[in-house]
Design a binder for these strands. Structure first.
Length: 112
DNA sequence: AAGCTGACTATGG
DNA sequence: GCCATAGCCAGCT
């Protein structure tokens, strides 16, 4: 596995590869990067994403249950939910109900 | 340098 | 499906 880039940078690269109308999980990204236990780091990377100049669709990254754990970190109070709903997600109580439909696995889509 | 923290996940009840 | 516990990795204080 190539580790030329920083962990964060690799995370952003994957997140930016997520097509609209699809979502992925922190764990999936971490596993794709070769560190299955670094799911929390992916979240941390998202937190630091604002410090990077490039745009990162962080709203397409949720936890494995489809819960919008990061919505509180967005500017607005419902921005993340609105963005996801706009992409076809059915959200109730900060949780994506049709998450299995939306789910996008970098392992399968980008290849191993 | 040592310990705490967190946008997580897996497992067991 | 929900709650509690433990493991997890890297950055921050």
């Amino acid at each position: 596995m190539v580790r030329n880039k920083d962990f964060f940078q690799r995370v952003y690269d994957v997140v930016k590869s997520v097509p609209g109308g699809r979502v992925t999980t922190y764990g999936a990204i971490a596993r794709y990067l070769g560190s299955p236990g670094a799911a929390r780091m992916v979240g941390w990377a998202m937190n630091q994403s604002s410090t990077f100049s490039e745009y990162v669709p962080a709203h397409r990254v949720v936890n494995r249950t489809g819960l919008l754990t990061g919505k509180h970190h967005f500017e607005g109070s419902s921005l993340m939910q609105e963005l996801l709903e706009n992409e076809g997600a059915i959200i109730r109580e900060n949780r994506i109900m049709n998450m299995e439909d939306m789910y996008w696995d970098p392992m399968e889509e980008l290849g191993l």
